[in-house]
């Protein structure tokens, strides 16, 4: 009789231990997953700020660069693309496109000394550059956490029950290769 109850106690203890182990693993994954989402919303905030700044830039540039409709148009359409993007991959792609279009516009702006001397324009440029840099930082932070999360769900023993709990791999926020390079300027006023 006494022996039987000892066995029950041992089994109970093992079950409790196992349950505790599972719960802590589960909570660990939930916490990390939340961290990933939080970091992504950091990127989102900055992307939003960027889309908000573009109309101001376009307005201040228009007067000076009336001949550069093409470059301005590219920026506006890239902005629309970014606003309509929903998935992480789409956003990454749209953001890269916008960076490219902006860099192109700014390289052209180099040829307009009046514009460059405009204080409003300089301030806007600083805000935009700052936002771009914040996006880069937020992207790096986000990708670091995604890596941590993806590694954790792929590692034993989490790998056994990550699927069971419904945890899948998270997507990296990729910048298109070369998006940050300053493009060569095709300076034509006739178009």
């Amino acid at each position: 009789m006494k022996k039987k109850s000892t066995i029950f106690i041992i089994i109970g203890a093992v079950i409790l231990l196992l349950a505790g182990f599972l719960i802590s693993r589960y909570n660990g994954m939930v916490t990390l997953g939340e961290k990933v989402d939080a970091k992504f919303s950091d990127i989102d905030t900055q992307l939003q700020r960027r889309t908000d700044l573009i109309p101001n830039l376009v307005n201040s540039v228009k007067g000076y660069m009336s001949h550069e409709q093409d470059a301005i148009e590219k920026v506006t359409s890239a902005r629309t693309q970014l606003m309509n993007a929903s998935s992480v991959a789409e956003k990454g792609e749209a953001d890269s496109a916008l960076t490219g279009a902006l860099n192109n516009l700014l390289a052209i702006a180099e040829n307009y000394p009046d514009l460059k001397a405009n204080e409003n324009f300089t301030t806007l440029m600083d805000e935009l550059a700052g936002t771009e840099n914040r996006i880069a930082t937020a992207r790096k932070d986000y990708n670091d956490v995604v890596k941590e999360f993806n590694t954790s769900i792929k590692q034993f023993p989490n790998s056994i029950f990550a699927g069971m709990f419904g945890f899948g791999e998270k997507e990296y926020f990729r910048a298109q290769e070369g998006a940050n390079e300053v493009p060569t300027v095709q300076f034509n006023t006739t178009e």
Binding site: E119, T122, T123, L124, M125, D126, E127, A129, G130, T131
Partner: peptide
Amino acid sequence: LPDGKTGRMQD
């Protein structure tokens, strides 16, 4: 210290 202001202050 928003970005634009720090830029202006540097200038």
